[in-house]
């Protein structure tokens, strides 16, 4: 149950941001898509919309909110579960509710507002998926939103960070059937987050070579994962010599996506948009380097097949 940002702009009269700080991380989200724009069914723009921010600390985004709900760290799942209980008119223990940092009245008020919205949306950020409970928290948000549809139209959308991370999900979905962490070792796709996700593969030492493009894990991943990248042959494609490049065996400098490399990028609501680069880069694009590596791999594999009569891999 999601929608495009255009639908939010034209319809949403109740907007919740949960575990995110759009004022600093997605500065134009409010003004271009969600809050201040006038829409077809919200003709007065900001005046027709209510904005709620749920977070563990008061970020600059709180200034934009009509209601700021400060919850205690790691209590996202509990808050969501209480909201689901209240939605179904179940009795919630006042003291248990208070452990979340909110009063029962605040929670009931939020549920009432959600139910009486014409078109509600929850944008959830990394504060949801990077805290205790991880994907269980995201699942709780999606369940709450599904259940809200018994009363009114309600949707949810993750606040995606890096430029084309949404595109990575989309491309892997249509090529392999799964959105990320896809194992192709057996010649067909297998999907199991926790087993085939990068940090787990690196920390366990499962992989014996790594090709990194459009990312700098050497600056962001847990140390044991970085240590393994330094142990194995790591290859980096990046416009800059990054932390990962410094521990890699091979680095290839590429053109910057969107500034000097053209192509397609997906917005967080899965709308594909064309790039219009303004500069010509002295470096090849990532797309071109991948194509050249693929050709080299193809040639070398064909050679080895011809010389020993068997393929490199079953």
């Amino acid at each position: 149950m999601t929608c495009t940002l255009g639908e939010v702009k034209n319809r949403a009269d109740f907007i919740v941001y949960w575990g995110g700080n759009p004022a600093e991380c997605h500065p134009r989200h409010f003004t271009k898509y969600t809050l201040t724009q006038k829409g077809k069914f919200v003709p007065r723009g900001r005046k027709d919309r209510t904005m709620v921010l749920v977070d563990i600390r008061e970020t600059p985004s709180a200034k934009a909110a009509d209601i700021f709900l400060q919850i205690k760290p790691t209590k996202d799942f509990e808050v969501l579960t209480i909201l689901r209980a209240l939605l179904k008119n179940q009795t919630v223990d006042r003291e248990l509710a208070a452990e979340t940092g909110l009063t029962l009245e605040q929670l009931q008020d939020l549920v009432d507002r959600m139910k009486s919205a014409r078109f509600g949306v929850i944008f959830f950020g990394m504060g949801i998926s990077m805290t205790r409970g991880k994907h269980m928290n995201s699942a709780a948000i999606l369940t709450l939103v599904a259940e809200l549809n018994a009363f009114t139209k309600f949707v949810a959308m993750p606040m995606r960070g890096h430029g084309n991370v949404t595109g990575a999900d989309v491309v892997m979905r249509w090529t392999t059937g799964y959105p990320f962490g896809v194992n192709l070792c057996r010649g067909y796709p297998r999907y199991n987050p926790g087993e085939f996700s990068t940090v787990d593969l690196l920390v366990r030492g499962d992989v014996d070579a790594a090709l990194i493009l459009g990312a700098d894990p050497g600056a962001t991943m847990p140390q044991p994962a970085i240590d393994h990248l330094a142990r194995i042959p790591t290859i980096v494609l990046d416009p800059k010599v990054t932390h990962t490049s410094r521990l890699a065996r091979v680095h290839i400098t590429t053109a910057v996506t969107g500034i000097s490399a053209t192509g397609t990028v997906y917005r967080m609501d899965e709308i594909p948009l064309p790039l219009r680069p303004a500069l010509k880069s002295p470096y090849p694009t990532d797309e071109e380097v991948i194509r050249r590596v693929s050709k080299a791999v193809e040639k070398k594999m064909a050679l080895s097949t011809a010389s020993n009569g068997i393929t490199m891999r079953a």
């Binding site: 960070g161 595109g167 070792c185 990068t198 990312a215 996506t257 193809e298 891999r313």
Partner: peptide, 30 residues
């Protein structure tokens, strides 16, 4: 691994390459 700051065209090529070398492909999403 990665795929966040590259185009869909590069991502598509990367999936094909991962399949060719029988590897694992993953993004920031994980």
């Amino acid at each position: 691994y990665g795929l966040s700051n590259v185009t869909c065209e590069a991502q598509r090529g990367a999936v094909a390459l991962a399949e060719m070398v029988a590897g694992v492909i993953d993004s920031h999403t994980s």
